[in-house]
Design a protein around this nucleic acid. Sequence first.
DNA 1: ATGTCTGAAGCATTCAGA
Length: 261
Amino acid sequence: MKIATWNINSVRLRQGLVLDWLAREQPDVLMLQEIKCETHLFPTEVFEQAGYGSAVVGQKSYNGVATLVRGDFEVTTELLPGFTDPAARYVELRTQGLALGNLYLPNGNSGAEQGYATKLEFLAALTARAQSFLDQDTDFVLAGDYNICPTPEDCAPGALGPDDALVRPQSRAAWRRLCWLGLTDALRALHPTGAAYTFWDYQAGAWPRDNGLRIDHMLLSPRVAERLQTARPDRDERGMERPSDHVPLIVTLDSSAPTPA
DNA sequence: ATGTCTGAAGCATTCAGA
């Protein structure tokens, strides 16, 4: 089973890139963030013709998430339980025996102290969601744009100041609280050290200088982690014509793992 | 070198957010 997450930075502007990527990579699931359109303006039919159904939670201008799925699925929630802000930042569905949460965390650098507090509130609600899945013995994946560099290795030297919301100690502590429920960071489980960036700013020549960040992540529940085969950012996408500032993170799971009784 | 990009409001050019 092949699952990917990609902050697309306007799905309408880049639907051609997404279609080409789907045709090439043939994932079972693609979780998109920053679709930047209202739900009814999402190009549902275009992806349907490519063989993918979609679960879309959009809004005007900003944010917005959508999960593309090949095969049957059931949407379980379009809001992160416990997170009261109405922004379109979460969609969750079930397919192939897995709960798949697609998330777009608040960046936290705008909106002053309240803006940053909202980021921590989202993380607390996400942690509670993960705990609830564990309590129910549900296999799950939580993937998307976390807007957090978990360790210094996940941020190119000098790319961000020490007070940036992506690297603040409180952000990293909240990330660890989530992981330490017993979740596996798919990329780091297979590639424990070294740069594995998923984002390069459009500004200041970040891409040619490789001043990247690892801020897109896929967390796996324990039984799903047992099935982990590969994880990699698809760096080639950043070199395309008019690319998103993020690239897809691709994870493959062994599909022949035993199913729970 | 805060050096780019997107969508909105509204019709040229700013503005916010990332």
